Amino acid sequence: MKGLFCRAGASDAEPKFVIQETTLPDVLGGHLVRVQVKACGLSPLDLKLLDDIGVHRDLIPVGREVAGVVLQVGSQVSFFHPEEEVVGILPLDSPYSGLCGAIDIDEHYLVQKPEKLSSVCAAGALRDALCAYTALHTHARMAAGHTLLVMDGASSFGLMCIQLACYHGVKVFTTSHSPQKHAFLEQLRPSVGVQDPLVAKVIPVFNGPSDLLPAVVEETGGLGVDIVIDSGVRLHEEESEEAKLLPHKHDVISVLGVGGHWVTSQKDLQLDPPDCRLLYLKSASLSFLNHEVWTASSAQQGRYLHILKDIVEKMSTGVLRPQPEEAVPLYEATVAMETIQCHQKKKAVVKL
């Protein structure tokens, strides 16, 4: 049985992805579930995070968002039975690659997959949906009537945030990074119910990010928004061409309303004293979105499983409609992962 693994190079070398043979133990542990993988989602590896939490390995398994069928259960498993369809995210210290034909995983990392939901859709969207739940529910405590600004709403993560927020009665603004993405966001409609646009205002920033603050001020009557969710920010004025589409950190703070909440994905965010002063004057708060926090700690395992179950149910009923990912065959997984790791934001789904 073969799986895809990452061989991390030196600090200045790019990681290499290799196919390695793996084997499963003859005896299944008490709480373990043996799953035949049907689809696996590929996302960028955060090698620095793995090093920070003490996961040191020569070969790091690749592909952790999995959907499949239960083959066998351990003697103490109470939630699952053979032939049930399941979906879940492998823990950070799992020795198995999701691209193996079969894997062993603790039952507390899995939930049942609804019959209407395809394995490819579940594996491809689970990570982004989990991030959206963490940002909006856990950090921002969103409620009906709030206003939300989602940066780059056409991304897979941004789209999940928009749909989840609209479902809960939140008024959504978003930014677009190209004319094509702008048209896509303008045409977003719910799959059921009243066919009003999901986004109240799409703000184009591909001509320059300077349009963001005036647009938000106009749309909110000068009050600002209750929640801002970014996919990264600019820390300095002079940065790369790709970073120019990102909002400047001061602009993000400026669009926040009194008592607002900023959820950021920027790992190395640095705030200057004037920025902190502005946050203080608005009595606003800041949270860091670490998408691995649920699998890195078992402190809130019950809440984590509740979120996963709600995600798959909402995807099966059409409340959450991820952008369709074209599944790639297993023999293209290595090339696909190299591309993902290079761009850091693209995703892929492998159908086994």
Results as ranks from 00 to 15, higher is better:
Met1Pro: 15
Leu4Pro: 15
Phe5Glu: 05
Phe5Arg: 04
Arg7Asp: 09
Asp12Val: 01
Glu14Tyr: 00
Lys16Glu: 15
Leu24Tyr: 03
Leu24Met: 12
Pro25Gly: 06
Asp26Leu: 03
Gly29Leu: 11
His31Gln: 15
Arg34His: 03
Val37Leu: 03
Cys40Arg: 03
Cys40Asn: 07
Gly41Val: 09
Gly41Pro: 07
Leu45Glu: 10
Asp46Pro: 12
Leu47Asn: 03
Leu49Trp: 09
Leu50Met: 13
Val55Thr: 05
His56Asp: 08
His56Pro: 14
Arg57His: 14
Arg57Trp: 13
Asp58Arg: 13
Leu59Gly: 02
Arg64Ala: 10
Val66Asn: 12
Val66Thr: 11
Gly68Ile: 01
Val69Thr: 14
Gln72Val: 10
Gly74Arg: 10
Gly74Asp: 05
Gln76Val: 07
Phe79Gln: 09
Glu85Thr: 12
Gly88Thr: 07
Leu92Asn: 12
Asp93Leu: 11
Pro95Glu: 00
Tyr96Lys: 00
Cys100His: 15
Ala102Phe: 12
Ala102Arg: 04
Ile103Val: 07
His108Lys: 09
Glu115Gln: 14
Leu117Met: 09
Gly124Glu: 06
Asp128Met: 12
Ala129Lys: 04
Ala129Ser: 13
Cys131Ala: 14
Tyr133Asn: 06
Ala135Met: 04
His139Asp: 01
Ala140Ile: 06
Met142Gln: 12
Ala144Met: 01
Gly145Glu: 03
Thr147Phe: 01
Leu149Ile: 02
Asp152His: 05
Ala154Val: 00
Ala154Glu: 11
Ser155Ala: 07
Phe157Val: 02
Gly158Ser: 04
Leu164Met: 09
Ala165Thr: 06
Cys166Leu: 00
Lys171Asp: 07
Phe173Ser: 03
His177Gln: 13
Ala183Leu: 08
Leu185Ser: 12
Glu186Val: 08
Gln187Ala: 15
Pro190Lys: 11
Gly193Met: 11
Pro197Met: 01
Gly208Arg: 05
Asp211Glu: 11
Ala215Gly: 00
Val216Leu: 14
Val217Pro: 00
Glu218Met: 14
Glu218Arg: 10
Glu219Pro: 11
Gly222Arg: 04
Gly224Arg: 05
Gly232Thr: 03
Gly232Ile: 06
Gly232Val: 04
Arg234Glu: 05
Glu241Leu: 07
Glu241Cys: 02
Glu241Ala: 09
Ala243Pro: 01
Pro247Gln: 11
His248Ser: 10
Lys249His: 08
Lys249Ala: 08
His250Phe: 14
Asp251Leu: 01
Ile253Phe: 13
Ile253Val: 11
Ile253Cys: 05
Val255His: 12
Leu256Phe: 09
Val258Tyr: 14
Val258Phe: 15
Gly259Tyr: 09
Gly260Thr: 03
His261Thr: 14
Ser265Val: 12
Gln266Val: 08
Lys267Phe: 08
Arg277Gln: 11
Lys282Met: 07
Ala284Leu: 05
Ser287Trp: 00
Phe288His: 05
Val293Leu: 13
Thr295Asn: 14
Ser297Val: 06
Ala299Phe: 11
Gly302Tyr: 00
Arg303Tyr: 10
Ile311Lys: 08
Val312Arg: 07
Glu313Trp: 10
Lys314Arg: 14
Lys314Trp: 08
Val319Gly: 06
Val319Cys: 04
Pro322Gly: 08
Pro322Cys: 06
Glu326Ala: 13
Glu326Arg: 11
Val328Ser: 09
Tyr331Ser: 09
Tyr331Pro: 01
Ile340Ala: 10
Gln341Val: 05
Cys342Leu: 08
Cys342Val: 07
Lys347Asn: 13
Ala348Cys: 05
Val350Tyr: 02
Val350Ser: 07
